[in-house]
Design a protein around this nucleic acid. Structure first.
Lengths: 197, 197
DNA sequence: ATCTTTGTTAACCAAATGGTTAAACCGTAT
DNA sequence: ATACGGTTTAACCATTTGGTTAACAAAGAT
């Protein structure tokens, strides 16, 4: 593993654990097992290092979301595949959602630029598909954006608010994990149930 | 307004905007329009000031959630009332959810103590009610905790991840607000639809 | 062999930041 | 009026923090 990779991985761990403001360059250097000056040698400054980490995190997560937007499946299959693959991915990267949401809220201006990128999640196709399935009588009338928000909410929230959820429902890490496994399929069925005619 | 109140309000604004690590004592003093030394005169130190703000925020939000747990209504009515009253409240305090979730993730140990409090949200009654309505054949079988998670997710997530949602769906502040108003009733109907026999 | 480029470090620096202090201010009881 | 209590401030302090520098090592290139 190159030094740059060591730094990057260390930075990802620390930034995801403490956020941009809470992370210390020295801590990242320690985690990487190298001298602090190397951070600035490889990544100009804290902001650049952070942007590299955030950009990477976001570009890992975005395709997971894009999956639902660009396939050829029926709406129901899209929902099933999305929740399943997204939760599978996030179980392996449980800190990503909270990290992205936190930094996005703390850094709106910088981060909104991501959504002008061509690679950004683009829901327009899915929205027109929903509208079509409504007029075709396959599903009940619903505001497509609200439906989309419901899907994302049920999928992402438990991870983003992990501590809150665990504390409120008084569940352990393993029980949480079990529930997330169950959600891979249960969310989809729940949503489909609520909209199918 | 007393000086202590001025400080507290300023601290709430700054902490909610930047989080504990990102907030600067000087910034809070400026926002309050007083000298920095007063912060330490009224609230010992940054940690104490933060805990006062967080405690207050949490104790405002908790009763909103407790509402759903301790009423005598039917499950469907509980869901309707909860989503409506919770969203109404959060529209007036749109930064609360993100703030609480963020600090809860960054500060698990300190914050988990809240859930040992007697005043904590306690879902056991609601969970047994759900179990009862399942055996009574009023609703379809479902893991009660999953159902609860769904309700909370759909209600809280759009606020917690406001920037993400706005960026992804490409909606303005006003459109966001309109959608949240719509959600006051639509979430409940959505969920009820998905579980009623 | 030696020069040059790249990688790496210890020591250092200036600014920022949380916190302190001692003096000033101000209403009020004597 | 004055002495006294709590309140407020300007100036100050110690530490932390992001960032720099200059020397050193290692690996090719000549």
């Amino acid at each position: 593993m190159t030094t740059e990779e060591k730094i990057f991985n260390a930075a990802r761990i620390i930034f995801q654990r403490k956020g941009f403001a809470g992370a210390r360059m020295q801590e990242i250097a320690d985690e990487a097992g190298i001298n602090k000056a190397m951070l600035h040698y490889c990544f100009k400054n804290k902001q650049m290092l952070f942007e590299a980490v955030f950009m990477n995190a976001f570009s890992q997560l975005a395709p997971q979301i894009n999956g639902i937007f660009f396939s050829q499946d029926s709406l129901f299959d899209k929902i099933r595949k999305f929740t399943h693959s997204y939760i599978s991915f996030v179980i392996l990267n449980p800190y990503l959602p909270a990290f992205i949401i936190q930094e996005m809220n703390n850094n709106p201006e910088f981060v909104m630029s991501f959504f002008k990128n061509e690679n950004r999640p683009n829901p327009t196709i899915l929205i027109s598909q929903i509208e079509k399935e409504i007029t075709d009588g396959i599903i009940k009338p619903i505001n497509p954006k609200q439906l989309l928000m419901n899907i994302i909410s049920m999928t992402v929230f438990p991870f983003a608010a992990q501590m809150l959820v665990k504390g409120m429902l008084q569940i352990s890490d393993t029980e949480f994990y079990t529930m997330m496994e169950e959600r891979k399929t249960s969310i989809a069925e729940q949503i489909i149930n609520s909209i199918k005619r």
